[in-house]
Amino acid sequence: MKKIKILIIEDDAEISRLTAMYLEVEGFESKIVDDGEKALATIKHYLPDLIILDLMLPGMTGIEICKQSRAFYQGPILVLTACDDDVSEVSLLKLGADDFLTKPLKPHVLVARIEALMRRSKPNMPIDVHTGHSKIHIDQASQQVIFEEKELILTSSEYEMLVLLERNIGNIVSRADCCQALRGINYDFNDRSIDMRISGLRKKLNDDHMPYKIITTVRNKGYMLFNG
């Protein structure tokens, strides 16, 4: 199956690196451009299926890139904005953007937006079907979680943690990735709050006594959602 190609136009090296890493874990192909002047040429050469575009860039602003690229690029553009950017949602849509997210990014929200945009723009393009935990059902639209046919009442941070673990079911999720889901993509991961959130999830999943059967701890590596 052909991978969906995503062009990340972002001058913050750490944000772009972490975004690309997370997208590639999710099965996307990605490329990074860190300068507005190079962006238009890269769009023409790389032919991405979707563009993630930061507004504040050196060389040429994201607004100009969005306007000029629409002369030749028809794919979806997902704009990244800071909370204090003086650009409204209506203005972004009029300039040619299809959707926008504010920083700091939450990885599972980013992936959900990308999948929604791809379904709208290329309804016949196959997108990998995610197979989740047999006893856990997550409705990302309503953020409702059902476990063993009962609704779980989770905090927002517990929900974000569970989504990350469930999307990577059977694979180890590092503490760094957990922190990105918990606090945003640009977060320093030296924090014991991760253990608190995992402990809270285990209690609500009736898995708070060793040996853990649902969320396992992989020593010195991270956590894994086990579908046993």
Rank of each mutant, 00 (worst) to 15 (best):
Q180K: 12
F189T: 01
E149C: 13
A41W: 06
K5I: 00
S156E: 15
L117G: 00
K204E: 10
D34P: 00
K2F: 05
L182F: 07
I15Y: 01
N220G: 10
K204R: 11
D85P: 00
I136N: 08
Y159R: 09
P211K: 05
K2H: 04
I127L: 15
E166N: 15
V173M: 04
I127K: 03
D49R: 04
L7Y: 00
A82P: 00
P126Y: 03
G96R: 06
L105S: 10
A116Q: 14
L225Q: 08
D49L: 05
V87L: 09
M1C: 09
A176H: 04
P58N: 12
L55I: 15
R202E: 02
A141D: 11
D177W: 07
D177E: 14
I172P: 01
F72E: 05
L101R: 02
G132L: 10
K3M: 09
I32K: 06
A176T: 06
K94D: 12
L152Q: 12
L225G: 07
E160W: 12
T131K: 13
Y73E: 04
F28Q: 01
I4A: 13
T131I: 14
I4C: 09
V218D: 07
Q180P: 01
R167Y: 09
C178P: 04
A176P: 00
M161N: 07
L57S: 08
P211Q: 05
E148I: 15
K5W: 00
M1Q: 11
M224R: 15
M210N: 03
Q68H: 15
G62C: 10
N220T: 11
V129T: 13
S199L: 05
K31W: 01
F28K: 01
I194C: 07
K203Q: 04
K94H: 12
Q68D: 14
L95N: 09
K38D: 09
D191P: 06
S174W: 01
K150R: 15
Q140M: 14
E10K: 06
D207S: 02
